[in-house]
């Protein structure tokens, strides 16, 4: 199996979610498969925010969806509270659902347009009924209040709200289940900049108030840095680099991470702008390159990169990189 190494996994008692060697593949046509995620390992400690960043097609959303089993998992395990979510079935899988909730990119289309938002928020509570304990109008009011939507508008339907408010309602719906893990898949990408900050602050507040652990997926490097404790950079179904948010942006080691940081309109000061000029196109995930998957576009690629797949290795502290030729960084003192 193509694996990117288990080095980033931490042996800590407070690890809440542990993903090991996750592989997700989708069949296309008669014989081909899309290698969407090929052996990713990471963990998330309780109360932590893990950011996943990468360009479209790198598999970041697939990872998130696989964790809550919206996609089938081909190989690997997803350990959550002593259970392997990857192999759960039927009632047992159903019982794991409230603990892991998700909010989606497009706030408006992820709400049922024909239902009142109060019903949208309370549906989960009604389904879980007695198991969740208290379902009451008061609880719904409290949730709406917490996310900053006036409960008196509860009888309105989603189209009567703006995108930002719909995202707040989506967050309230997820929080209603009293989840332990909240998975946010590009939650602010569809929002205007002035509203984006409101929702990001709200997520931080809710994290503290409800004791959440967050998995935050975005293609926006500045947004991911703002919310995350730890960040994974993904490329073509693999993890390139994992590290504490500030450290990763301060001392990016993988050529791809550096290319990303150099490409944004106001490039990070830690990289050369010219590093953003990576050539060529994203290879097809149906037939990914052998060796390092970034070898077709990497300025440092040599023979070994076409032969062997680099494994995740520690490069000091909580910082791991999967590269044969990690870029040396000068550590300022």
């Amino acid at each position: 199996m193509a694996g990117s190494g288990l080095a980033p996994l931490r042996d800590r008692p407070d690890v809440l979610l542990r993903v090991e060697g996750l592989v997700v593949e989708f069949p296309v046509g008669r014989r081909d498969v899309v290698h969407a995620v090929s052996g990713i390992s990471f963990d998330v400690a309780e109360g932590e925010t893990l950011g996943i960043v990468g360009e479209s097609g790198c598999g970041k959303s697939t990872v998130a969806r696989a964790i809550i089993r919206l996609n089938d998992i081909r190989e690997g395990s997803v350990m959550f509270e002593g259970k392997n979510l990857a192999v759960l079935k039927g009632e047992e899988l159903r019982k794991s659902r409230p603990d892991l909730q998700m909010i989606f990119q497009d706030p408006i289309s992820s709400l049922n347009p024909r239902r009142k938002v109060r019903d949208v928020i309370s549906e989960g509570l009604k389904v879980w009924g007695s198991q969740m304990g208290a379902w009451s109008e008061g609880r719904i009011d409290e949730l709406m209040h917490a996310v900053g939507v006036d409960p008196k508008f509860g009888d309105r339907r989603p189209h009567q709200f703006s995108g930002g408010q719909c995202q707040r309602i989506g967050i309230a719906r997820a929080l209603a289940m009293d989840p332990k893990v909240l998975i946010c898949d590009e939650p602010v990408s569809a929002l205007d900049v002035s509203v984006q900050a409101q929702v990001l602050n709200l997520l931080e507040d809710m994290k503290v108030r409800y004791g959440l652990t967050l998995l935050f997926i975005s293609h926006d490097l500045a947004v991911v840095k703002n919310v995350s404790d730890r960040i994974i950079v993904m490329y073509l179904g693999k993890a390139c680099e994992i590290g504490a948010a500030d450290e990763l942006y301060e001392h990016p080691r993988h050529p791809y991470t550096r290319a990303l940081l150099a490409s944004i309109p106001e490039p990070a000061p830690t990289v050369e702008v010219s590093e953003g000029d990576i050539e060529g196109e994203l290879p097809s995930p149906i037939n990914p390159p052998k060796g390092c998957r970034f070898n077709t576009r990497c300025p440092h690629a040599d023979e070994i990169c076409y032969e062997d797949e680099p494994q995740m290795e520690a490069v000091g502290g909580d910082h791991f990189v999967a590269c044969h030729h990690p870029v040396a960084v000068s550590i300022d003192v």
Partner: peptide
């Protein structure tokens, strides 16, 4: 002024509290 303050910046440390614009257009 408010727009510039509300966007997350890459040179700020993580978990910097953002300064959003209240309300909407």
């Amino acid at each position: 002024d408010a727009l510039l303050r509300s966007i997350p910046r890459i040179d700020q440390p993580s978990h910097t509290r953002l300064d959003p614009i209240p309300g909407r257009p």
